[in-house]
Amino acid sequence: MSSPLPSCFRPSTTTTSNLTVYHTETGPVSITWSRSMVGRSLHVEVHHDDSFDSLSFHLHITPFLFWKKHGSKKLAPNTHLFWNLSKAKFSSSPEPLSAFYVALVVHNRITLLLGDSPKEAHSNSKAHRPNTPQLLLLQKEHVFADTLYSTRAAFAGKARLIQIDWDHSRLSFIFDGETVFQIKRLKWKFRGNHRVLVDGVHVQISWDIYNWLFHNHNHNHNNNAHAIFIFKFQHHDDQDSNWNLGASEWAKMGKSCSSSSTGSFSSVLEWSSVEENQLLVPVGFSLLVYAWKR
Rank of each mutant, 00 (worst) to 15 (best):
S273L: 13
A156W: 08
H70T: 09
V105R: 03
G263Y: 06
P282A: 13
S30Q: 01
H226F: 07
N84S: 11
H47Q: 09
A154N: 12
S41H: 05
N218Q: 15
K293Q: 07
W250G: 02
T24A: 10
T20G: 06
H43D: 08
D237C: 11
V201Y: 07
H58K: 05
Q182H: 09
L245C: 10
V46M: 00
N222Y: 11
D208M: 10
W83T: 08
L161W: 10
P133C: 04
G263V: 10
V106F: 07
S30P: 00
E95Y: 06
V203T: 05
H47D: 04
L59E: 04
N242L: 10
S266N: 10
H122R: 14
L5P: 12
V29C: 02
S117M: 13
S241Y: 00
L81F: 00
S92N: 02
E95Q: 03
N193L: 11
Q163D: 05
D49V: 10
S30L: 01
G71C: 02
W243G: 01
Q134R: 06
V268E: 12
D165W: 01
L104D: 03
S241E: 12
K158M: 11
T26F: 13
R152T: 12
P28L: 07
P4N: 15
S86Q: 11
Y210K: 13
T179D: 01
L114S: 03
H128L: 15
M253P: 03
Y22I: 01
S3F: 11
N216F: 10
A251R: 15
T151S: 06
Q134P: 02
